[in-house]
Amino acid sequence: MLGSLIQQTVNALTIGSIYALIALGYTMVYGVLRMINFAHGEMFMLGAYVAFLVLSMLIGTVGAAGAIALAAAFVIAIFLVGVIGVGIERVAYKPLRNSTRLAPMLSSLGVSLSLVTGIQILAGPQPVAFPSFFPVVRYQVLGGTITSMQIGILIAAFALMFGLQFLVNRSRIGIIVRAVSESRPTAQLLGINVNGAISMVFFVGPLLGAAGGILYASYYGIMTPTMGAVIGLKAFTAAILGGIGSIPGAMLGAFILAFVEVGGTALLPVITHGMLGTEYRDVLSFAILILVLLIRPAGILGEAVSEESIVYKREF
C-alpha cells in the first residue's frame, strides 16, 4: 500500500512537471497578449521531433549516443524550438496585434494544423520510437518502484522552472516581461521594448514546451505528430486551474492536475465499480477544466477578473 502510494506520487510528480513546463508557455503568452495560443501544444511535439533529428545527426557525426551527445541534443533542440516559436510569432501573430481578439486565436489554430500536418508529411503519421535520454535503472523504495528516468525528468524540469523563476523575478528582461503583462499600453508609453518582451515570451515558452516534449517522449519511448493536442489541452487546464497569467499558478495547477489524474485513474474504476474505467482519465481532466471555470474562473492564484474591472480598464 505504502509502496504503491510512493510510486503513484512519483508518477504524478513526473507527469505534473511535464505539464508544468507546457503550462508555463500558455500562461506567459496569455499574460502578455491575452491570447490562447492553440499552437503551443505543437511546440511540445516539435521538441521531440527536433531532438530526434538533432540526435541522429549528432550520432551520425560523432558515432555513439553518449551522455554528452544526449545533453547537447536536448539543449540544441529546445533552443531551436524557441527560435521557431519567435519566428511563428513574427509571421502569424504579430500582424494581428491590433486586430480582433478572435483573429490571433484563429491564426494559431492554423499554425497548429499546419505544423501537425507538416510533420505528418515529413516524418510520417505513424508513431516513432524515441530514444531514452536517461539511463533506466529501477529502484525499490519501500516497496514501490521508481526509475532513474523519473528522477532525471524531475531534475531537468525543476532546473528549468527555477531558471525561469530566476529569469522572471531577477533579470532585467523579466521585469520588462512583467511590466508588459501588467499593461501593454503603459509599458509602451514608458518606452519599454514591448516587441522584445513578446519575442522573449515566444522564445522561452516554446523552449520550455519543447523540453517537456522531449522528456515526455523519452518517458513513454514514443512520439507522434498529434501528441501535442491532448496534452496541450491538459496543460492549458493546468494554467487555468492555477490562474492564467500567473507563473507559479501554472506550476501549481500542473501538479494538482497530475495528482487528480493519477489518483482519479486509480480510484475511478473502484468508486464506480468498474463502470468508468481508466480510459475516462481525459474526461476527468476536461471535467475539472469546466468545473474550475464555473466555480473560480480566475483560478487558484489568478487575480479575479470581474466584468467590472474589464469595464474599468476599457474606460480609463
Binding site: 492553440f38 486565436m105 491532448v230 492549458f236 475516462y280 481525459d282 474526461v283 476536461f286 469546466i290
Partner: peptide, 28 residues
C-alpha cells in the same frame, strides 16, 4: 448554460474539451 457566462476566449477551450469528452464517451 454553464459556459456562456465565461469570457469569450475561455469558451474556445471549454467547447474543445467538450467535443473531446463526447468523442471519448462514444469511444468507450
Amino acid at each position: 448554460i454553464p459556459v456562456l457566462r465565461l469570457r469569450g476566449d475561455y469558451l474556445a477551450i471549454v467547447t474543445l474539451g467538450f467535443g473531446e469528452i463526447i468523442r471519448i464517451i462514444i469511444n468507450n
